[in-house]
Simulated assay, not measured.
Amino acid sequence: MAKINDEVVTQIVKKYGDVFRTGEVVFEETKNLQVIPVSPAIDVALGGGIKEGSWVILTGDPKTGKTTTALQFASNCQKEEHGKRKILFINAEGRLKSMNLEGVHGLNREEILVVDSAEGPMPAEDYLNIVVKYVTQQPNCVVIIDSISSLIPSKELSEDVEAQFRPGLPKILSIFTKKLANIVPKQRAIVIMINHFIANTSGMGMKRKIPDGGVKIRYQADTLLEVAYTKKWEASSGNQIGQLVHWRVGCSSAGGFPGGEAQSWLRYGHGLDYTQELINLGYEFGLISKSGSWYRCEFIEGDDGKFQGQQKLAQFLEDNPKHLNKLNEKIKEML
């Protein structure tokens, strides 16, 4: 029990258990929470990555890289230096495909538990109760719910399809987040909720689209990332090889500033392209210079750091991880 000499406190502890801690104890516990990287560009906007013991919401239009980004983060969480964390994937959309699982570099598919409905659709309550039990009993886990928008309450499953009622999902999500609010940080778990934009039919505000799921989950979120827009990523041949995803930060558990922005590079069949993101960041921070088609790495001495064309530069960095890591460390030092 916290060392607070107070008769009232003693009476409360006798009835409710050891519920008191000093502010110093809480401070020491929270300051040592690990921050886990997502990708170089996103990490810069978030202030380092995503902190354990937190809630995350990824919101965007369909096909904008939300699932890939969540799985890429999961692959980072599986690494030894980040705790070899257990991953639980709630496949509420029923759309998790082989290309999602093999198209993320470093992902260990054998170490991911995927929750699907056994027979017919599963109600939202069942999915969320599974999450509550798993997080409560599995410290340091990562849960991905894909997606909040696809969850359907049991009452709506049992009735005919119609739109003449008030949706019950926001209330269920409110109860869900309240039940896990104190458990997630104590278990040092990370809960990632993938969400969609829906049409704003309320007549309130100027936004045409708003996040689905109600406001309670947004209150609960420690990190909010929204996809502002995407662009095609084309090779010199003109073929599309991926997409550029422009993220906007609503808030960050790692200390990033609200309103911050990041551009991640999603390569098909590979996931988030760390090398491409580091090259762009290196150029922005003055660690890589460009003259015509020539690139020069200012952090590499001599002519070894000079390359004609970005593709040759990228290949060199991928073939020489020590230089890629050095570029990454230099960028972190400048933040």
Rank of each mutant, 00 (worst) to 15 (best):
K155Q: 11
S158M: 11
Q137R: 14
S149R: 03
S154E: 15
N140H: 13
K133C: 03
E125D: 09
D146A: 00
Q138I: 13
T136W: 06
N129D: 15
L128F: 00
N129K: 11
S158D: 14
V143F: 01
P153V: 09
P123D: 15
A124I: 02
D126W: 07
L151M: 07
Y127C: 01
S117T: 13
N140W: 08
E119Y: 11
S147T: 05
V143S: 00
L128D: 01
Q137K: 14
Y134H: 14
D116H: 08
K155D: 14
I148E: 04
Y134K: 01
I130N: 06
A118E: 15
V143D: 04
P153W: 12
K155E: 14
S150H: 09
A124F: 05
V142Y: 02
V132R: 10
P121T: 11
V143I: 05
M122R: 02
Y134F: 15
C141A: 12
L128H: 02
V131K: 00
S158E: 14
I145P: 05
V132E: 13
Y134P: 05
V115A: 13
D146N: 07
Y134L: 04
D146R: 00
P153S: 10
V115S: 12
N140F: 08
A124G: 06
V132A: 11
N140A: 02
I130L: 13
D126V: 13
E156T: 10
D146W: 02
E119C: 14
P121Y: 02
K155N: 09
I152V: 15
Q137Y: 06
I144A: 01
V132L: 06
A118P: 14
L157Q: 14
M122P: 05
E125A: 10
L151H: 04
D116T: 10
L151K: 04
A118H: 14
Q138T: 14
N140E: 12
I144Q: 07
A124P: 04
V132Y: 01
L157M: 13
V131T: 10
P123M: 05
S154V: 08
E159Q: 14
E119N: 15
K155W: 08
L151G: 06
E156R: 03
N140V: 05
E156G: 11
N129G: 07
D126G: 09
